[in-house]
């Protein structure tokens, strides 16, 4: 027999496999119209940002603004610092992305794990000299890479255009992009776990979006305890409060992470508790997904 043609260093092989799976996931995403639509929309948005509004900056303030280069936009006698104007635009972008952008990202990546576990495909992948943990982590990282590239295009593009047009570069806006990516990662990890458990794309998407949405509604319940007065004092109130508090601490803090993204854009100090309190959810979900996946028969 000839010398083996395959790798024999298992650690090096695992790293190669991880990159191969990430690359495959990106290629797979490229074939989806949703991602193509997202890229097209982003490109149109960046083009509009670069061409529609012409801004004249005089001594750090906006002197005049024109639409399509000719139609004057009324500024009035108010002096608008460039930094404020840019920050307002960036906060608007961040607000859009922490809602629609995140949900869209979860929709686009929702079927990646269930597709991996499709009968006939999982047999081929799992029969390679490939650890199942590497398989699931590679696919999950691939999904994160797809969203990261999309966000990088949107955030990097918007930041570049605004900096080019106004001369004001707000690094906080880029940090906001990373915070939104972190929020996605936390919600996506829940989606990975449910994907491995159910092998069902719609249920996975519901789980991911649900995780994000729960974070939005649990924060007010955690902050304003008055809502419990809707229940009779006693065990019912304790139970309701206990459930809300448990869910609040277990699930990712999507609303507080959103607030952090806005703070970062405005240049305000960040609150670190939402990051630290959301991370365990992501770690536990991925660990459980790997554990469950490695025990399953295919």
């Amino acid at each position: 027999m000839s010398e083996p043609v395959v790798a024999t260093d298992m650690r090096k092989l695992a790293a190669t496999q991880l990159f191969a799976l990430i690359g495959f996931t990106v290629r797979e995403a490229r074939n989806k119209w949703t991602l193509l639509a997202l890229f097209t929309l982003t490109t149109l948005f960046l083009f509009a940002l670069a061409t529609l509004v012409s801004i004249d900056v005089v001594e750090g303030s906006i002197a005049s603004a024109r639409l399509f280069g000719t139609i004057p936009l009324e500024i009035g006698n108010t002096t608008i610092p460039v930094s404020d104007a840019v920050t307002v635009i960036q906060v608007a972008i961040v607000s859009l992305l922490t809602t629609f952008g995140l949900v869209l990202a979860l929709f686009v990546t929702g079927n990646i794990v269930p597709l991996t576990l499709q009968t006939g495909w999982v047999d081929l992948l799992a029969s390679q000299p490939l650890g199942r943990t590497v398989l699931i982590i590679g696919r999950a990282l691939g999904a994160v890479a797809v969203v990261a590239v999309t966000f990088a295009y949107l955030f990097g593009g918007s930041w570049s255009v605004l900096t080019w047009k106004t001369g004001f570069g707000n690094a906080g806006f880029l940090v906001a992009g990373m915070i939104i990516l972190f929020t996605f990662l936390c919600c996506y990890s829940g989606m990975v776990l449910v994907g491995v458990l159910t092998r069902n794309s719609p249920i996975s998407i519901i789980a991911g979006v649900g995780t994000w949405f729960m974070g939005l509604i649990l924060y007010p319940l955690h902050t304003y305890a008055e809502w419990t007065t809707a229940f009779d004092p006693g065990w019912k109130r304790s139970l309701a409060s206990g459930i809300a508090e448990t869910l609040y601490w277990v699930l990712p803090k999507s609303l507080e992470l959103t607030e952090n993204a806005t703070r970062a854009t405005k240049g305000d100090a960040l609150a670190w508790t939402p990051f630290l309190a959301s991370m365990p959810f992501a770690i536990v979900c991925i660990a459980l997904a790997c554990w469950w996946f490695s025990r399953q028969d295919y």
Binding site: P4, T8, N31, L115, W121, D123, S127, P129, L130, G131
Partner: peptide
């Protein structure tokens, strides 16, 4: 994984991504 390094497998049921 190491036991599968020099193994080829042609399953009865298989599915390749169509793209």
């Amino acid at each position: 994984p190491i036991s599968r390094l020099e193994v080829g497998y042609m399953p009865e049921r298989r599915h390749y991504p169509g793209f």
